[in-house]
Simulated assay, not measured.
Amino acid sequence: MNKQDQPNFGPAARYRVKEHLVRNVYREFHEHQTCGQRVADYVAKVVGSWPFIICQSVIIAVWMGVNAYLVYMKVFDPDYFNAWDPYPFILLNLVLSFQAAYTGPVVMMSQNRQAEKDRVMAEQDYLINKKSGEEIEVIMAHLVHQDEFMNQLMARLEKIERTVEKV
C-alpha cells in the first residue's frame, strides 16, 4: 500500500483531550467554607429577605405603638406603667444602629465571598470557552479534511466511470 492509498482519518482522529476543565465551583466553595463564612452567608440570606423586612417593620411599629400608648395613658393616669422608650424612641434608634453596625459588615463579608466565587466561575467559563474554541477549530479542520477526501473520492469515481464507459 502506498502513502496515497493509506487511510487518513483527519484532524479529529488525532485530537486528544489534554485536560478536564469542568468543575463544580459552587460545590468547591461550599466544601471549603469556615463556620464564620457559613454564618455570614446565613445572616446575609436572612437579612436580605422579605420576611425579615416585614417582621422588623412589624416589631418597630409595635414598639412605637406600645410606647406611644403608654405615654398617652401616663398623661391621664400618673400611676400607669411608664413607657420604656418614649418619643423620640432613643432606645429603638440604639437597637437599630446596633443591628446595622453588625449586619452591615457581615453582609459585606458574604458579598465579597460571592464576588470571589463569581470571579472563579468567570475564569472557569473563560477556560471552557477557550477549550470549546480549540475543539471547534479541530472540527472545522476535520470538515475541510472530509471535503477534500470526498472530492478525491468523487474524482476517483469519475475516473472509474470514464474508464468503464470507454470499455
Rank of each mutant, 00 (worst) to 15 (best):
M1C: 09
K3E: 11
Q6C: 03
N8C: 05
N8K: 12
A12L: 15
A12R: 13
R14K: 10
Y15I: 01
V17M: 07
K18F: 07
K18Y: 03
E19A: 09
H20T: 07
H20N: 11
L21G: 06
N24S: 09
N24D: 15
V25N: 02
E28D: 09
E28T: 12
F29N: 05
F29E: 04
H32D: 14
C35N: 10
C35K: 07
C35P: 00
C35M: 10
G36P: 14
V39G: 02
Y42L: 13
S49W: 09
S49V: 10
W50M: 14
F52A: 11
I53W: 01
C55V: 13
C55G: 07
S57G: 15
V58R: 11
V58Q: 06
I60M: 15
I60A: 14
A61G: 06
W63P: 08
W63H: 09
W63E: 01
M64P: 04
M64V: 13
V71M: 11
V71G: 07
Y72K: 06
Y72F: 13
M73L: 11
M73K: 15
K74I: 13
D77I: 04
P78S: 11
P78E: 06
D79Q: 14
D79F: 05
Y80H: 15
F81A: 09
W84Q: 12
D85A: 02
P86T: 04
Y87G: 00
Y87A: 02
Y87L: 03
I90S: 01
L92Q: 00
L92C: 06
N93G: 11
L94S: 01
L94E: 00
V95E: 04
L96V: 13
S97G: 12
S97Y: 02
F98T: 13
F98G: 08
Q99K: 08
Y102E: 06
T103F: 05
T103P: 12
G104W: 00
V107N: 06
V107R: 12
M108Y: 07
M108K: 08
M109I: 01
M109G: 05
Q111R: 15
R113Y: 02
Q114D: 05
K117P: 07
M121W: 06
M121D: 15
E123R: 15
D125R: 14
D125C: 07
Y126E: 04
L127R: 12
L127E: 02
L127H: 03
I128H: 00
N129E: 14
N129T: 01
K130M: 10
K130D: 11
S132R: 15
S132P: 01
G133P: 11
G133K: 12
E134R: 14
V138K: 04
I139W: 09
M140F: 04
A141M: 08
H142R: 12
L143F: 13
H145R: 11
D147E: 11
E148S: 10
M150Y: 10
N151G: 06
L153I: 08
L153F: 09
L157H: 03
L157E: 07
L157N: 14
E158A: 13
K159P: 13
I160V: 12
I160C: 13
I160G: 00
I160E: 09
E161T: 10
T163I: 08
T163R: 15
E165H: 14
E165Q: 10
K166N: 11
K166H: 01
K166C: 00
V167D: 03
